Computed example of a mutant assay.
Amino acid sequence: MRKVIFISAGPGDPDLITLKAVYHLRQSEVVLVDRLVSPEILKKYSNSKSKRKIIYVGKSSTCRKNKSLLYLTQKRINEIMIYHALQGKYVVRLKGGDVSIFSNIMDELIELKKYHISYEIIPGVTAAIGAAAYTGIPLTARGYASSVRFITLHNPNLIHKNQWIEFLETSDTLVFYMCIQKLNYIFDRLIMNKKNIYTDKLVAIVEQATTPMQKVYTSSLYNCKELIKKEKKFLSPSLIILGKTVNFHSKFKWTSDSSFFPKKNYFVS
Rank of each mutant, 00 (worst) to 15 (best):
S171K: 15
Y177D: 03
I137V: 12
G143Q: 01
P123T: 09
L174T: 14
N157V: 04
V175A: 07
T140E: 05
L153P: 03
Y134V: 02
C179A: 15
N155H: 15
L139E: 04
R142L: 12
G130P: 10
S171Q: 13
T126A: 12
K114I: 12
T140L: 07
T126Y: 15
I129T: 14
P138S: 04
A145M: 01
G136H: 06
L139H: 09
K114W: 10
I137Q: 12
T126E: 09
L168R: 08
L168W: 00
M178F: 11
V148G: 10
I122C: 01
I117E: 14
A132H: 10
A131M: 06
I159Q: 01
P138G: 08
A131H: 08
N155I: 15
A131K: 09
Q163E: 14
N157W: 02
A128H: 08
I122M: 02
A132F: 08
T126D: 14
M178G: 08
N157R: 14
I117Q: 04
I122E: 09
V175K: 07
G124S: 07
G136E: 01
E169F: 03
N162E: 12
W164C: 07
E120C: 02
C179E: 04
G143H: 06
H154C: 06
F150R: 05
G124Q: 03
W164I: 01
L174W: 08
T152F: 11
E120N: 08
I137G: 00
A128R: 11
W164M: 00
A131D: 07
E120P: 04
L153I: 01
Q163P: 06
I165W: 00
E120Q: 12
N157Q: 13
V175W: 03
S118E: 15
T126K: 00
H154F: 04
I151K: 09
F176P: 06
L158M: 11
I151D: 06
L158G: 09
T126S: 15
Y134L: 00
S171I: 01
A133G: 10
G143F: 04
Y134I: 03
W164E: 00
P156L: 06
C179T: 13
S146L: 10
T152Y: 07
F167N: 00
A133D: 02
E169C: 14
A141E: 15
H160S: 13
H116N: 15
F150K: 08
I137R: 03
A145E: 02
I121G: 06
A133L: 11
Y134N: 11
G143P: 08
L168T: 12
K114N: 15
S146R: 13
A132Q: 03
E166I: 05
P123M: 05
D172Q: 14
S118R: 06
